[in-house]
Design a protein around this nucleic acid. Sequence first.
DNA 1: AGAAATGAGCATTTGCGATTGAGCATTAAC
DNA 2: GTTAATGCTCAATCGCAAATGCTCATTTCT
Lengths: 389, 389
Amino acid sequence: MLLDKELPKIRTLPSCTCLSILSISAAFKPLIEFYIPGGSIKYYQNVLDYNDRMVTIRDVAKKMNISITTVSRAMDGYADVARDTRELVIRTAHEMGYTPNRAARQLRRQRAETIGYILPTEKPQFTDAFHSEFIAGLGDMAAESNFDLLVSAAAPESVAEQSLYERWVQGRKVDGIVLNRIRLHDWRIQYLSEQKIPFVSLERSLLPVEFIGIEADANQGFLELMAYLIHQGHRRIAYIGAAPQLKIEMDRYNSYLAGLKAAGILPDPVIITHANLTPEGGYLAAERLLRLENVPTAMVCVNDLTAIGAMHAANESGLQVGRDIVITGFDGISDSAHTQPPLTTLDQPVYKIAHQLAGMLLALINGQPLVEQQVKIEPKLIFRKSTGG
Amino acid sequence: MLLDKELPKIRTLPSCTCLSILSISAAFKPLIEFYIPGGSIKYYQNVLDYNDRMVTIRDVAKKMNISITTVSRAMDGYADVARDTRELVIRTAHEMGYTPNRAARQLRRQRAETIGYILPTEKPQFTDAFHSEFIAGLGDMAAESNFDLLVSAAAPESVAEQSLYERWVQGRKVDGIVLNRIRLHDWRIQYLSEQKIPFVSLERSLLPVEFIGIEADANQGFLELMAYLIHQGHRRIAYIGAAPQLKIEMDRYNSYLAGLKAAGILPDPVIITHANLTPEGGYLAAERLLRLENVPTAMVCVNDLTAIGAMHAANESGLQVGRDIVITGFDGISDSAHTQPPLTTLDQPVYKIAHQLAGMLLALINGQPLVEQQVKIEPKLIFRKSTGG
DNA sequence: AGAAATGAGCATTTGCGATTGAGCATTAAC
DNA sequence: GTTAATGCTCAATCGCAAATGCTCATTTCT
């Protein structure tokens, strides 16, 4: 008799961290690890000994004296179940506290009933304010369709990122993927198209691939913003952007240029700079700008987090934001209302966008027709103290 | 032939959002929903038709001409597999890109291979900075053991919270649970003990239940902090706390009192106030304090987020934090370095704490002996500009 | 030395809980 | 009296783990 087994020595795939259910997955582990810790042997014991069994579809069927099939079909909305039967099944199931076993269903259906999102991040921090809202939106929508949301993190354009996507796709860990922070020539889009995995994205790439997702039209709002700053008398307006290969960077940068052009101002490369969408990046970029001989009187940032960092730098230089210098953001994350001073920003309904995005993906997965394949959203300008007035 | 089925009419359990894997779950849906949208009927189609099949344990076994059992046991670290066989199996599996099907394994093992964490939150926002780091720590550790982390959110002491915990426990959605924001008499601890579900917690309750988890010892750091403030000449030091039934509130409040007492200062109930651990709460509380006749010269806050709100209020009153008034936090979240001015705080290694906490829980689940059942951590005082100097 | 006991190493088989194509009654319609 | 619609059940999976059991080699016992 061989009940004993050694302590788990093999770790196969990295696992996951799940969120409403949200599921996060380790990005950095090798496929299979194999190590023998001194060869010690331990008895295997299952400590999870609950008293009560789970209630299964069998129990429901038995209690009602009908077949398992009928219960399943009734719960799942098949048309070949009599109305009365269906209602009774549902009532009974509810009373008995029956809930379909997810693992069994997934096994049988060969679907993960899960959508995935990979956070573009470098740090061991799970989310920033933007992604926090984004994930919440995805998760809630997924939950509405009884789907999981699997979330993990990997640095953009890293090996880890690529292997993570591959694992999720090849291993069928997810039935569809949400993309964000699209790069101009984004391998992910190419890859997912080839693999025929459903996906949607926030922002589109320049690749000649059919686009399904949501686009925020920065242009209109940015022009307004620039016009406002220029109307206030600003002529030397700096720009703190993101990595140039990002779609949002291209859009917002172009809008910045357009805003300058509309007022007949020539862009000055010296005050056009790039950060990495984080407060740290914004801080460093702004610091540099503030050490210039001809200090800009306004800083337009590609997102709120960058702006928060920039404000930090300005404050540290003894400047009072909103009076001595003017700073703006983009996104309208909730923190932006609590900075000192509160941040003028282009507000996007991040939660709603994510919610809708997930909805589109689910429709795709279920083969339902999409009403709109491409949705445009116009960010709304919110004036706060960081631009004076 | 009956291929058609109506559009999904039944939604059973709320689903999940998963994170390194992290899994979030919808907190607010009823157990079973039943609605008929006009009785429209749609054809069912499975759109997920990949070309290639998944590679299963069978394929590996066939290729190697051994039984699937052996493959399984080899991969799983059982002792009754010859060393050579095991290594060959692992190599082959890797080459073939085999990775065990999670659903099948879970179904068979009757384990979810998932640990759970329920965010204490009211809003539809997924996380704040504190929990973001906390979740990252949990998720990464879970991933190391090939576990998922299931994350959801519910308001503390709400019906939703209770039903969520019950669903996770009764429905075996998780094999263990991580608790945080412990209340002095916490029903969750009682419930989980009774149900014999493994759990660990950050902070302990006053219940006579064996405690497994991590405790942060606020006292020492707080005394130092208070001594520092008093040394600076502050005599009127306000306190902005959290709900009094929280363990952290009790600890930190008591330490605040102890700090005053050590300096022979009598506490003034007028400047002792409670918020809800959010910036919004801190803002409102501070606003009230600043309208007092005898305005405090320092505000000690129960956590960083509260302090951030308080700073906002102070700034808005035209006070310069660090010069006109002094404000402190607790937690050392990364945002605290980017406030204006940067925040003096008691730094806890949130990520590390969560990481270790998850490790303890996993040991518990696997029936491994715990080296330490109770771990104490001392937060470290970080002086920044918000306390002048 | 011969018989019995042990155990390593692997195979067979069963079933976890659910879904689903096919098929079987029963009744209604023409 | 055939055909069709309706409502239900059968039985076959899905991929894996674990209980059981078999074989053969080695050790232990007498």
